[in-house]
Amino acid sequence: MISPPLLYALIMLAAPLAMVVTFSFWSQNYLDLDTTITLKNYKEAWSKPIYRVLILRSLNISIMVTLVTVLLAFPMAYFLSFRVKRNKALWLFLITIPFWTSYLLRVFLWKVILGYNGVLNSALMGLGIIDEPMTFILYNLNAVVITLAHAWAPFAILPIFVSLERIDRSLLEAAEDLGDGPFRRFFRVTLPLAMPGVIASTLIVMIPTVGDFITPKLVGGTDGLMISNMIQIQFGKANNAPLGAALAIASMVIVGSVSLVIFIAGRWFRGRAQ
């Protein structure tokens, strides 16, 4: 007897993953697949500079996005948990409002805001703050970071909020009673106890952003292309699914390792803080 959840996990998670892994050991023979087992794709993925550049850029972008998102999400979650006394549910609801529009639409809106003749540039020029439109805000890394940080903000706020909510307020009073000012208290009690939420937020934002390909395609320009765009090309136009699969597995391993490091670092920080 296989229980329904196990069946679900097998069909929805394990089977596709197994297929991608299998594909990555095959090779493309123009129109048909050569099913002899080979490490050719992995050799190519690890040796060609273009892939290294793309995966490093993807990591770089996702780490920047994660940093920006989590750093902005923490004060928001802190405010929600410690300052908002009534209608917390309403505030949480308001945070989710950006999700009412489609992801694609939100990315396009950023294009409108950040563009050469966009809202931001027109406004700043109209106010006389700048003389000519800023070009460093669209079709490059900055645009990707801004757009992704905005898109993932709620996902970062919620886990931090939950972990802050779970902190027994008498612990904060105890810290104060034992001589800590607000600053010391934050670093010795609040932050260590909120760490599980911070780690969760970091992973929740970082893992999907490494693999994002819509945002870099729409607002990233050529400088902003990421590894997923390459994987998409391999599966599509380049018609080399095995290489695409190998790239996907390679980036999965890398992201997995980075996540593990973050997880362990978080544990260590929590244990160290006193």
């Binding site: 008498s170 104060e176 009673d177 034992l178 001589g179 009690v189």
Partner: peptide, 20 residues
């Protein structure tokens, strides 16, 4: 403020820091 007073408190919930 509480952190500058010559008093210390034993809280009802004890408020033992769980991470220490």
């Amino acid at each position: 403020p509480a952190n500058k007073r010559p008093t210390n408190m034993v809280f009802q919930s004890y408020a033992i820091f769980p991470h220490l």
